[in-house]
Design a protein around this nucleic acid. Structure first.
Length: 276
DNA sequence: AGACAGGGGAGTG
DNA sequence: CACTCCCCTGTC
């Protein structure tokens, strides 16, 4: 087990904020499968204990080189967002693999966290390779181009998303996805949306979690709800596009980070209230 | 703006 | 137990 010093970091909030799905809670920590790696991580106050990956991976994956305090300061534009930040301080946006993120969020359409988790775990079992760490077994994420059997994709209970996944597998490569890094946010988004099954919301998730575009502001039902509640109290009707435009303008420092805090805050609040 | 998708879960007989 | 119905949620 190795150790790394951390600051302004909360592992639980980071991992339980629906930006990644292949997590197993165990041994007072988490086993995470990320693309072709299976690793263990546990927080002990200002340290992360980890195994299965090297230090450079940890720094990059968890964005440990980011000045989170500074970032939070920049997005603290009003009391509402400050409340959410206070409660879940240290929630980081991970730097995930673009291909894996793309597949994850194609699966996310008309689904929820348990269903997405089921879908991607099944896909990995069918198309990935077995991988083991300690007493935990997992499967690597399918490589681009390897999901060549539509029937198997369907077997993974992906439903109408199966064809989108099949097409993405045919059309996308790591190289093509890497190219999007050279583009600005809106150009990259325009490119992503050309793919079937990727609309505005899914594209924003991919851009935020897979590329680190902090301009992205994914508007799902939770964000729509919290934004209406906090910022559109007088307006009778507002659509997701308007919420997106407002969010990007009002939270202009880092809309994506603000979205994360608001998303987590509203989900936890409603969960604790016994709603949902 | 409304139809629609597959699976899960609650409710009913 | 078998069934029906409704909900979930984002794309088309």
């Amino acid at each position: 087990m190795q150790k790394i010093q951390i600051k302004d970091f909360n592992l639980q909030h980071t991992l339980e904020s629906a930006q990644l799905f292949r997590i197993l809670k165990k041994n007072n920590g988490y086993y995470i499968t990320a693309r072709d790696k299976l690793f263990f991580v546990q927080q002990q106050e200002d340290q992360l204990l980890y195994d299965g990956v090297d230090e450079q991976f940890m720094i990059d994956y968890f964005a440990l080189d980011e000045d989170h305090a500074q970032l939070v300061l920049a997005i603290s534009v009003d009391e509402k967002i400050k409340t959410a930040i206070k409660q879940y301080y240290g929630m980081r946006i991970l730097r995930q693999d673009p291909w894996e993120t793309t597949v994850n969020f194609i699966c996310s359409a008309a689904a929820n966290v348990p269903k997405i988790t089921m879908n991607v775990n099944l896909l990995a079992e069918r198309f990935g390779k077995k991988i083991t760490l300690h007493d935990v077994t997992s499967y690597t994420f399918p490589e681009p181009g390897t999901m060549q059997d539509l029937a198997i994709i369907k077997d993974c209970k992906t439903g109408f998303r199966a064809e989108y996944l099949f097409a993405a597998n045919t059309m996308l490569t790591d190289q093509k996805l890497a190219h999007l890094r050279n583009l600005c946010y809106s150009d990259a988004k325009r490119e992503l949306i050309k793919n079937a099954g990727i609309g505005s919301k899914v594209a924003d998730c991919i851009l935020l979690f897979g590329y680190g575009f902090k301009e992205a502001f994914p508007v799902d039902t939770w964000i729509a709800k919290v934004m209406k509640e906090l910022y559109f109290t007088k307006k009778r009707k507002v659509n997701n596009q308007q919420i997106l435009a407002f969010g990007q303008k009002y939270f202009k420092a880092h809309p994506g980070y603000t979205q994360m805090y608001l998303f987590h805050w509203i989900r936890m609040r409603d969960k604790n209230n016994g709603k949902n």
